[in-house]
């Protein structure tokens, strides 16, 4: 047995991981998730603003991380829609422009379409190359950075941008971020210089840890990894349920993904434990036989 485990083909581990994730997708494990304080503070920031406040919403991710980030982006977009906030949508990642447009079609216009007319209640600024340089210019001069919106209309002719000369006019920044450029750059180039605008973020597990130092002064709230998204879905569905009074079907994605998360985390812990046991037993055996590496 020990010899088998010591020389185990890693494809067996791959198979275990595949099954640990696949089985709970086919046979879901429904659990409720208690919202954490950080998820609650993201909700409160969006919710306490008066209806129709100006919210800058940045889709700073690509398909590689959309499994983690798309559920939280959609839940926050839905929440902004229910609050009738004026939305200024952009992206620091090229594919974020496309993913943001999809989310607007599938969530915002589907569930809050009556309150949203393009150009009057929301605008898509799209993507520009330059990473943090984009933030740096737009915090002082928006039309210099984005000469037109994604539909080719100059910003001066878009009603929702009347009185908005730069990002400083925003009440809240919502950044859904996969890495660099993302939440960190928003804090460095915008929020730290102009703290009047509050910021909340949704990030990947990988990035979330490095954003804790900014909480709470520079970052008012954060949804970290799929768990943060699941918690947010719970809060939003409780306060703003779908038209039939039930949770919005699109806003159950993260909660669904917590099922595979449970089994896969258990597998990870077991793998580390078994790996260590095998290692210790192997070492003891080596000692007994006098080898002692």
């Amino acid at each position: 047995m020990l010899a088998f485990l010591e020389k185990l083909d890693r494809r067996w581990v791959f198979l275990l991981m595949g099954l640990a994730v696949a089985i709970p997708i086919l046979f879901p494990l429904p659990f409720e998730y208690k919202p954490s304080a950080l998820a609650r503070s993201v909700f409160d920031e969006i919710d306490r603003l008066p209806d129709g406040s100006r919210v800058l919403f940045s889709f700073d991710y690509d398909p590689a991380t959309s499994g983690e980030l798309s559920p939280m982006a959609r839940a926050m977009l839905y929440h902004c829609g229910k609050k009738k906030h004026k939305l200024y949508v952009m992206a620091l990642f090229g594919p974020g422009k496309t993913l943001g447009s999809e989310a607007i079609q599938e969530i915002l216009l589907k569930y809050a379409g009556d309150d949203y007319t393009y150009g009057e209640d929301y605008v898509e600024l799209g993507y520009q190359t330059g990473n943090e340089g984009v933030i740096k210019v737009a915090v002082t001069d928006l039309p210099q950075m984005f000469p037109t919106d994604v539909r080719g209309t100059p910003l001066s002719k878009i009603p929702v941008l009347e009185g908005v000369e730069n990002f400083q006019a925003m009440d809240l920044l919502v950044a859904v971020s996969a890495g660099d450029p993302g939440s960190k750059q928003w804090i460095q180039y915008f929020i730290s210089a102009y703290p009047k605008t509050r910021m909340v973020t949704g990030t990947t597990g990988v990035q979330s840890v490095s954003l804790y130092p900014y909480i709470p002064n520079q970052l008012a709230g954060m949804l970290g990894a799929i768990k943060g998204a699941a918690e947010y879905e719970t809060i939003v569905n409780a306060k703003y349920p779908g038209p039939d009074g039930k949770p919005v079907p699109e806003l159950t994605e993260a909660q669904r993904r917590m099922g595979p998360q449970l089994t896969a985390h258990l597998l990870m812990v077991s793998l580390i434990v078994v790996g260590n046991v095998v290692y210790l037993m192997g070492r003891r055996k080596a000692h007994q036989s006098g080898g002692g590496r």
């Binding site: 991981m17 994730v21 597990g205 998360q261 896969a264």
Partner: peptide
Amino acid sequence: FTVMGRITLLSER
């Protein structure tokens, strides 16, 4: 948290 993220991406696929 990194492990958590990677697993989510797999479950999405």
